[in-house]
Design a protein around this nucleic acid. Structure first.
Lengths: 222, 222
DNA sequence: CGAGCGATTGAAAAGACTCAACCACCGTGG
DNA sequence: CCACGGTGGTTGAGTCTTTTCAATCGCTCG
């Protein structure tokens, strides 16, 4: 597979933490692919050949835990770079990545990525810094998962998703939502009902709209 | 604070994943300090000035979650390098580090560490690889914490501690153990009782001996 | 129109936590 | 030498949360 050279520019933005350009539907990238909902980007056990830059769409990264129950580790959105942890670790993927909606991604080969890294020592430092920061964040997240109640975690996940969906309606299956929170689907549904009763969210079909973000954030604490 | 130059050698071993030398009580290091149980190495909120190489002893890294309840994120032992995530992220510590027993550590300043990193591009790659691997591991750990029952997690923690304590008796307060598992102290004690009844562990005072490691590992699954 | 999947509900059971009391050990000071 | 107080460990009982299982509903697709 070939890399999309114009996307290396996007990566540059990614690492420089400059304001991310809105993904460019206008000037198409030659090696980008358009994926449909449920399309798989990579699977646990396979060996990473590169990274993926997400132009638009939503991707879930998950793994199978006890009795095959899915646990969503992270959700990626437009502007994110997907799959570089596994690639840099030089191990096989330990997670799966699947699109949650129509998604445009661009593949960048390991070789190109590495060349890019080598081209600029500052970028390399930025990468190290980014990985370290992520590890710090993971400590926080772990504490939350271990200590917060399912209700608090549900509120947490909704807050996170609110950002990922760019303040628009959250559009996820109940099962995916439950797998992100780490609970049973039925429990999740009951909690959504509660939040709705308390006028914190609004539900229409599978779509969830946050109507009172402040109150939702309170729910993550107590 | 000055760095212990002879310890940079240890770090070299650390990153090269060569067999780690037993920590050298014979030839003392000038800038190492000997810490007592409960001594604090660093605290959440302070800014990292360097990293710590652990010659001997056990250190818990934890943070405070809901209502101040402590969550142990990780336990470090002899041969580990402590605190480089926060240092590399260039943010304040988001965790505390405290000795669980008499511990000998050596401080290496950020400057020296960075110089060392710059001295060898291979080391830098090794660092990137290490951080990435750790992030992968964290995904697994998160899944376990989110999905496994307290009993399974307790078994997990005991398996991990068994290694950390070098196959010897585990010597931790019940509260620390509970904070590692992420449960209430009382619950933990009841589970230990069960494991003892099933002849998986043996308890004498606060010390825990694993008598049937295979069976313990089974407990982590079902 | 019927199959099938996702969403929802109810009821019962299991798991875990909280609170309160009690025990056991240990060092201190009388 | 012993009573005392304190800390950490243990136990019991009751309660709340969360899961599980079973059944129903509603919608979409062929």
């Amino acid at each position: 597979m070939n890399s999309c050279s114009s996307c290396l520019l996007e990566i540059d933005h990614f690492f420089n933490e400059k304001e991310r350009k809105e993904s460019s539907q206008d000037n198409p990238h030659p090696f980008c692919s358009s994926l449909a909902r449920y399309d798989v980007i990579f699977s646990e056990g396979s060996y990473p050949k590169g990274v993926f830059y997400i132009h638009s769409g939503i991707v879930k990264v998950y793994k199978h835990g006890i009795q095959g129950k899915e646990q969503i580790i992270q959700i990626f959105k437009s502007g994110d770079l997907l799959g570089f942890r596994a690639m840099l670790s030089e191990k096989n993927y330990n997670v799966h990545a699947q699109c949650l909606e129509q998604t445009d991604i661009c593949f960048i080969s390991k070789k190109d990525f590495m060349t890019y890294l080598d081209s600029n020592p500052l970028i390399r430092n930025e990468l190290i810094r980014g990985l370290s920061m992520e590890l710090q964040d993971r400590a926080d997240y772990l504490t939350d998962m271990a200590q917060k109640s399912v209700k608090q975690r549900t509120a947490m996940s909704l807050v996170i998703l609110h950002e990922i969906y760019n303040e628009k309606e959250i559009n996820l299956s109940r099962e995916d939502l439950a797998n992100l929170v780490g609970t049973a689907t039925e429990t999740l549904i009951r909690l959504l009902k509660e939040f709705k009763k308390d006028a914190i969210i609004d539900v229409s079909g599978r779509k969830i709209k946050i109507v009172n973000l402040e109150k939702l954030k309170e729910q993550t604490l107590a």
